[in-house]
């Protein structure tokens, strides 16, 4: 899967780097001074590179914990995100990462200890209060777990910080790492869903809805708190039927009483990211759809967006209490 690994020269003896190299003994190792030399050059095509991304092992020297965007929260007052990885194993047509980065290579920041130190510092700025830390903003939290060992390191660290709430956001079924340890009160494993038909068309390489639900069920039985993320909600001529069926499938599998949260948000992208996505996928039907640009964001035409969210909210109300539902309105 990984044929080339780029490694910052200062990290060649780092224990995580050594371990990953041992995992990919046939990969070609290429040293660079800083990961930006490989990741940031202008002359790169995300779409072409996505067919065969490489792995970049890097150090994140600063900006490790960031304020979460408005509307990202699932309750509580303080929301931050941290990205131990940039980019994702999957290839979702709507993903904003394609608009944000020029490269599709996976960047793994291996200085976990520095991330954790910054998380503790951030937590200390809100004494006695709950603080949310989201890990799946610039990547899928779990998809590359066999390589990153993210959970192996971070979960025991969060176990000692009851006021630090961690959200793992994923479309992956890589839950073995979670299942081998006790469930934690301050960790939510949140799975993103679109209807299977939409997923098959737009979420390339993503496990089927049913496989993800099976993984969720295993976690729920093991006592893990779960989240559902219907974000982005995608329009099609028969979106009502598609989402009705999706919700029925989801809530027939999971025990609602044990759910932590459900969030919902319509497809939306910053204008510049949208332009980049159209350039990368000019013939993608999603981007040719009933969209409008307002205030620097591209989203569904207002009446349609409202109708879709209202419909989904009403449908969800058949299964979950209102208190569990969190709308994601980034444009707000």
């Amino acid at each position: 899967m990984i044929d080339h690994i780029y490694i910052e020269s200062g990290l060649r003896e780092h224990p995580r780097v050594v371990e990953i190299k041992q995992r990919y003994t046939s990969a070609t190792i290429v040293e660079c001074d800083r990961y930006g030399e490989v990741f940031n050059p202008k002359a790169q095509n995300f779409r072409l590179q996505k067919s065969r991304p490489a792995l970049i092992l890097a150090d994140k020297p600063r900006g490790r914990v960031q304020q979460a965007p408005a509307g990202y929260g699932i309750g509580g007052d303080h929301h931050y995100y941290f990205s131990h990885m940039l980019n994702c194993l999957y290839d979702c047509r709507y993903c904003f990462l394609q608009g944000m980065y020029r490269s599709a290579h996976y960047v793994l920041f291996v200085n976990y200890e520095d991330f954790m130190r910054d998380i503790r510092t951030t937590l200390a700025a809100h004494p006695g209060e709950d603080v949310w830390f989201y890990s799946g903003y610039d990547c899928d939290s779990l998809a590359l777990e066999p390589v990153s060992r993210f959970c192996d390191y971070f979960l025991p660290e969060f176990a000692g910080l009851p006021h630090a709430k961690l959200e793992l956001r994923t479309k992956s079924t890589q839950v073995r790492g979670l299942l081998k340890q006790p469930a934690m009160d301050n960790v939510v494993v949140a799975f993103s869903f679109t209807p299977q038909e939409v997923s098959a068309a737009l979420e390339h390489k993503v496990p089927s809805v049913q496989k993800r639900l099976d993984a969720m069920l295993q976690l729920q039985r093991a006592g893990w708190q779960l989240g559902l993320r219907f974000d982005p909600v995608i329009y099609s001529d028969n979106f009502k039927q598609q989402y009705r069926e999706l919700f029925a499938q989801v809530f027939a599998t999971l025990d609602v009483a044990l759910l932590h949260s459900v969030s919902i948000g319509a497809f939306r992208l910053p204008k510049q990211f949208f332009k980049t996505l159209v350039r990368l996928h000019p013939h993608e039907a999603l981007f040719a759809g009933p969209l409008r640009e307002e205030g620097g964001m591209v989203s569904y035409q207002q009446s349609l967006g409202t109708e879709m969210i209202d419909f989904c909210t009403e449908e969800l109300a058949r299964y979950i209490p209102q208190a569990l539902l969190f709308p994601c309105d980034y444009a707000a």
């Binding site: 070609t28 660079c32 001074d33 030399e37 050059p41 067919s51 065969r52 490269s103």
Partner: peptide, 20 residues
């Protein structure tokens, strides 16, 4: 070639290796 270094300037380029 996956990495090109220019001796005089010290600049590096990394041609992405996407060919299977």
């Amino acid at each position: 070639i996956h990495k090109i270094s220019e001796h005089n300037s010290g600049r590096n380029w990394f041609p992405p290796q996407t060919l299977k």
